[in-house]
Design a protein around this nucleic acid. Structure first.
Lengths: 364, 364
DNA sequence: CTGAAAGCGCTTACAG
DNA sequence: CTGAAAGCGCTTACAG
């Protein structure tokens, strides 16, 4: 097997030192244009590629970033992973992907293996009860962006939030405006921390409408089957709700299927609103109303913040105080068919979107 | 920022040489049990983690494998990526993921960057007209598994195939058995090489049924919108088909939506069968009949083959001849609601599956 | 503007 | 059974 071309091979071919080739390849100053040109031509001709393992070892930066998801087969994640990968590749970073599914590895183990691989930083979701481990890794030098973290920034750690509570409130307000009073919620039993914002938004909006005593949340797994189970639970004990807000679209679709199987017509007998706006939402019938989390923007924002963090670490010494604001991305309500009654012929051509502004939350 | 613990730190703490710690960590022989035990305890206590960049640089193996997909937001890929990642992690390999979407980078560029990162091997799909570049990278030392490659194995390269033609034939036979004669196909305009097997299966089965002159294929983009466009094309020029076989589920769902929008009832007026069995297939209504590609098994098989290839390279010198057989994974027909008429109340509880056996194709 | 030396943290090949 | 030396391919810090 042929050995790959190295810096020394190029240097020998041009008749300069390896240091000079390194300068040319990295676009560093301190090099005559003539030399630079000769070197780069030879680099091209010999098809030289920097060995990133060697560079990473020496320079302590690998140009890789890690992303940890819980389950790639959850339709929420692929668009995010894609966005992270595309954004990262623009700055020359390669994506390393891990999923915690089936808990074969804990998050902490994955983070340890990422560090052993020399990733420059990591993007992950805030998992219940793991914050101490995560903070520890950050403190030990792994820059980290935490998505939908309840707490604020910390050493070497930035938070980004989606306005889950605001999205939930918009969804419930919409159901109220459609005339519903008996509005129930199907939420996520697995992750209280993640469902908190949505639960709170629902409860708060009910309270404001004077319906605090009709608040009703059932908790199930955040899957299609879990949504179906939640709907079964709601239907089995009166009063029957006429509107349902679900933790995510998967659950909403399961709930919708269960309602239909029970002979109910959606949205006439029962209105349903989900969360996330996965692609499936616009392909089921009736098309699902939902609250959109813009995963492309989320991925871009997360990578941008992570790169800032990495920069700050690299240019250390200055040690600027970390920004105390955490970006909060607005979540837009998208009204489709599953929650709109009195519209005999729904028009599929145009979703009705209500835009919520992005804001900055200050964390004292 | 605290420096990470190194082999030398551990060695100094135990009072042995770095070489001895390395032996203990890697489970190599030639070490007294007492020493091994002392070393490993200290490794644990000091929380030592092997620096994979250093190991990779020296040992020329990084314990990473690359996966190249065209578009992570295509629901076909996440389950595959997840399976590859899970299987790879069992042998201590980390997944590096890239997608060629929007052609920001060509496959060849991605392969070059993977090699610069020292990946031990790569899994990818065979893209039209890129085979020369891919073979070149394999020849230069990058072990590679190609999925659904038309050609056979090559130096440092293994192929795996799904029985796309067999799956297509099963789908068309099913439509024939349901009594359909006017059966059209909506296929993929972007990748003739990838659609070839399915196109051929469809045409062959029509010919065998004496319907060769009624063969009709329209080509569109392999998306929901493309499927809708294909159906529009089919409906706009008679004779109207009563059965349609689509390149994949996304197209099938688009076709179904378009047919329904045109006032047709699926499956009564028009039966539809897709390909892949993405999750969405069982969540649309009517539930979509399809041909399943088991992506979990595909990922497992691909990783297993890749590891064999990597092993062979590592233990080189012996140079065993590469196996001349390429595994062909069977694709099962799954009959749901979209293609089954005369069943007034479809039972959602049990899919009807017809299992096709896996075989080995010999490549002379 | 350019280069010689050292070293990142491991493993390989060799010696005892 | 254990270790001293060399080197993987780069970049850092320094000298000229």
């Amino acid at each position: 097997m042929p050995r790959n071309t190295t810096l020394h091979d190029v240097a020998a071919a041009v008749g300069v030192s390896a240091r000079t080739v390194s300068r040319a390849v990295n676009g560093e100053p301190g090099l005559s244009d003539a030399t630079r040109k000769r070197v780069l031509e030879t680099v091209e001709r010999m098809n030289y590629q920097t060995n990133m393992l060697a560079r990473g070892l020496r320079a302590n930066r690998s140009n890789t970033i890690g992303l940890i998801v819980t389950d790639l087969t959850d339709p929420f994640f692929p668009a995010l992973a894609q966005s992270v990968q595309q954004t990262a590749s623009k700055s020359g970073h390669t994506l390393i992907l891990a999923s915690t599914q089936k808990a074969a590895e804990t998050e902490s183990q994955i983070l340890a293996s990422f560090r052993a691989r020399g990733v420059d930083g990591t993007i992950m979701f805030a998992a219940d009860g793991q914050r101490r481990d995560v903070l520890q890794h950050a403190r030990e030098g792994l820059p980290m962006v935490l998505i939908d973290d309840q707490d604020g920034p910390a050493e070497n750690l930035t938070s980004i939030r989606n306005d889950l509570e605001g999205g939930a409130r918009a969804a419930v307000r919409h159901l109220l405006e459609e005339g519903h009073r008996a509005i129930a919620m199907i939420s996520n039993v697995q992750s209280p921390e993640r469902s908190r914002g949505r639960d709170r938004g629902y409860a708060e909006e009910m309270r404001l409408a004077g319906l605090g005593d009709r608040t009703r949340i059932v908790y199930e797994e955040a899957t299609v089957d879990g949504g179906a189970a939640g709907m079964a639970a709601l239907l089995s004990s009166p009063p029957r709700p006429t509107g349902v807000f679900a933790y995510n679209d998967l659950m909403a679709i399961g709930a919708m299927r269960a309602a239909q199987a029970a002979g109910l017509v959606v949205p006439d007998d029962l209105a349903i609103v989900g969360f996330d706006d996965i692609r499936m939402a616009s392909l089921v019938s009736p098309m699902l109303s939902t609250v959109r989390i813009d995963r492309e923007r989320l991925g871009q924002t997360a990578v941008a913040r992570l790169l800032e963090l990495i920069e700050r670490r690299a240019g250390s010494g200055a040690e600027e105080p970390p920004s105390a604001t955490v970006p909060v991305l607005g979540c837009d309500l998208i009204v489709r068919e599953s929650s709109r009654r009195a519209h005999s012929v729904p028009t599929a051509s145009h979703d009705e979107t209500r835009q919520e502004p992005d804001v900055e939350a200050t964390h004292e």
